[in-house]
Design a protein around this nucleic acid. Structure first.
Length: 352
DNA sequence: AACCCCGACAACCGCTTCAAT
DNA sequence: TATTGAAGCGGTTGTCGGGGT
């Protein structure tokens, strides 16, 4: 038994909006607002459109201060970083880019940004394959170092939040934190406070993990639900590398999320997982490198095979590391804000 | 000139979330 | 607490225009 349709599909117009329809809708909403009921709105103004269609048209096109096209490098960076962090949560990503709609960003990602990144991947791979180690050998070696085999380690100049690939036993002293900082700025914008901003208010200081990947994760948020959700989504995503010991706790006025050892929910995994799955599928199912980088002139059209990594608008960015540690893990932010919820390694990795 | 291909973008569809009852 | 329905969201499809053959 399905839900009743929101409108009489036989009597609604579909397809592109005419200027007259746009004018009607815009004039009405500017004068009266939506009235909180999109379903009823088209009848009020005599439009033979579905309410959902009106809503979409308004939000994506007619709404004031909408910008179309002309994405800046900075916007590219933000989109990319957030996609990698939180996956295809276009509405959240759009919220960080004033004047941009989720639909626009989604289209932009699918048609341009994704290919741009794939192209950068390709160039780096070419540079790397020119060196002595074959990709598959390296894949094998690196995946063997992880608990979950089979993930592709994508060396790249992606603007990543995650630390470079390394065996669990290795250390990384020089992690570039700039991208973490940008995420942090977003969090601060959303209302988060970091423990090292207010060390006296925190019981959890900046933590160190076996990878020596620093990230101060004791953030307090107001009780505003959406703010909390958004913040937690981003925060937890930015911390999703190797969850070993993280906690959520709530006081009367704030919710705290603390992570000892970089780690956390798998939102980040959504983004990277999807994209890396795409890449690995290409690699494994389509004749290895040829399938991925083969003959097409992806992206900026240069498949000239230069072995140098060209300067990138993304800046010098960390390599991509994405160990898929999390399995059967219930993200902290999806819980109903428990008093205290502690993650332990076994709950993340299951029986070993 | 006609056709084909492809990229870009607008719009639709169906599922999920959330608030009202 | 369960139900209902609107809003929100993300994936997918449709359409159009430009470029190549």
């Amino acid at each position: 038994m399905g839900r009743a349709p929101c409108c009489d599909k036989a009597n609604v117009k579909k397809g592109p909006w005419s200027p007259e329809e746009d004018a009607k809708l815009k004039a009405y909403i500017e004068a009266n607002g939506t009235g909180g009921n999109w379903i009823a709105l088209p009848q009020k103004i005599g439009l033979k459109r579905c309410g959902k269609s009106c809503r979409l048209r308004w939000l994506n096109y007619l709404r004031p201060n909408i910008r179309h096209g002309g994405f800046s490098e900075e916007e590219d960076n933000i989109i990319c970083s957030l996609y990698i962090s939180i996956g295809s949560r276009w509405s959240i990503i759009a919220a960080q880019l004033p004047g941009r709609t989720d639909n626009d960003i989604k289209n932009y990602w699918n048609t341009k940004l994704k290919k741009k990144l794939l192209g950068k991947q390709r160039k780096v791979q070419q540079a790397r394959s020119a060196s002595c180690l074959s990709f598959k050998q390296e894949m094998k070696r690196e995946t063997e170092n992880y608990r979950v085999p089979g993930m592709v380690n994508l060396p790249s100049d992606w603007p990543l939040l995650s630390p470079p690939v390394m065996p669990l036993t290795s250390t990384n002293q020089d992690l570039d934190l700039r991208d973490q900082d940008s995420i942090r700025n977003i969090l601060v914008k959303l209302g988060g406070r970091f423990s090292d901003d207010h060390p006296q208010s925190s019981t959890t200081s900046t933590t160190t993990n076996p990878m020596n990947f620093r990230y101060p994760f004791d953030v307090s948020f107001s009780q505003d639900h959406q703010l909390y959700e958004d913040s937690m989504n981003i925060l937890s995503s930015a911390s999703s590398i190797s969850p070993l010991n993280s906690t959520c706790s709530q006081t009367n006025s704030t919710t705290h999320f603390s992570v000892n050892q970089v780690g956390g929910p798998n939102d980040m995994i959504q983004g990277l997982d999807a994209f890396q799955a795409e890449l690995s599928e290409l690699i494994y199912n389509n004749n290895g490198f040829e399938g991925l980088y083969g003959t097409d002139n992806m992206v900026d059209g240069s498949s000239t095979g230069t072995s140098s990594v060209e300067s990138s608008s993304w800046g010098d960015i960390n390599s991509l590391a994405y160990p898929q540690f999390v399995s059967g893990y219930e993200p902290c932010q999806h819980q109903s804000i428990p008093q205290v919820s502690t993650f332990d390694e076994s709950s993340y990795f299951g029986p070993q």
